[in-house]
Design a protein around this nucleic acid. Structure first.
Lengths: 153, 153
DNA sequence: ACAATTTTGTTACATATGTGACGATTGATT
DNA sequence: AATCAATCGTCACATATGTAACAAAATTGT
């Protein structure tokens, strides 16, 4: 907490430029985690996210997943197609709204979710331990605040 | 700072999963900033990053930019090509190492850098103000720590 | 001095992504 | 009821990205 982030002179400063620094940190973490879902099953980031959402929250529609995961609708559409082909999820029509489909993990999908999820949790625990629990919790809290501020809530 | 990030039970928890939460926050910020360099000059993220680095640190080689900005070498190569076409930067051979080229902003490039940079700084100041200076500084500090921990330094 | 290895930056190729359009359905307005 | 607008998910298309291979130059080891 040594220096101010805002700048009285109008000079641009990369070191304290939030979009850049956040992206760098986030990409470093994402890349280091990537090998787990990638090497384990050859799954893409979008697929892993959809899997994680369905595993965590139960049956949802594509739009709901997109909103919750901040995933573009075409990314969701493609990930769902791919996960369906693997028989990790199935679609069921919704009688109330025939435009949407309820997406549900199959047994096979659940097994994959539990397996990848537990490795993900292990990764997270290790990282949190290296950072120190307090700092890890701070990051989550600041991520919350950032999203609220950006989305104007 | 209400809850722990690590988990004694092995259940996966998306809410406190650092790769996901960081990526979400970082993407929210990046997207909201994007309209500035995108609408202003139709410049891509990679191009903006290369511009920002050369403007901030002076002449550098492609590899140096890639390392500092965490940009893949093909991204740098393409961004440099595109910025050169716009006449925002020029290349000069390095007599010590004839594999590399010293990249330097042209006068036009400097003007663009100052203009975009000052808008970027304004964006950052506004965001830091909304977050509160203390929290903005915390984010920078935590980004530093994260990168060090991930890269094992 | 030489051969083997590494580094730099570019390219071809395959894959991943965003944009815009679309058909089908639903909700809102009149 | 009929029309209009909005939403859902998919597709074709264009663009962006990563991988692997490469030529040129530098570095290392002998």
């Amino acid at each position: 907490m040594s220096e101010s982030v805002s700048n009285t002179n109008p000079e641009f400063d990369l070191e304290t430029f939030l979009p850049f620094r956040l992206h760098q940190a986030s990409e470093a973490v994402s890349q280091s985690f990537r090998s787990i879902y990638r090497n384990e099953y050859g799954v893409t980031r979008s697929e892993w996210r959809v899997l994680a959402h369905l595993g965590q929250y139960g049956p949802m529609t594509a739009t709901e997943i997109g909103n919750s995961a901040s995933l573009h609708k075409t990314k969701v559409s493609r990930a769902v197609f791919s996960l369906e082909k693997r028989r990790w999820l199935s679609r069921a029509p919704d009688q109330r709204d025939r435009r949407v489909q309820i997406l549900t993990l199959t047994k096979l999908g659940h097994r994959s979710y539990r397996r990848l999820g537990s490795q993900a949790q292990h990764y997270n625990d290790q990282l949190a331990q290296k950072l120190g629990e307090a700092k890890a919790a701070e990051i989550i809290e600041l991520a919350d605040i950032l999203q609220r501020v950006i989305e104007g809530r």
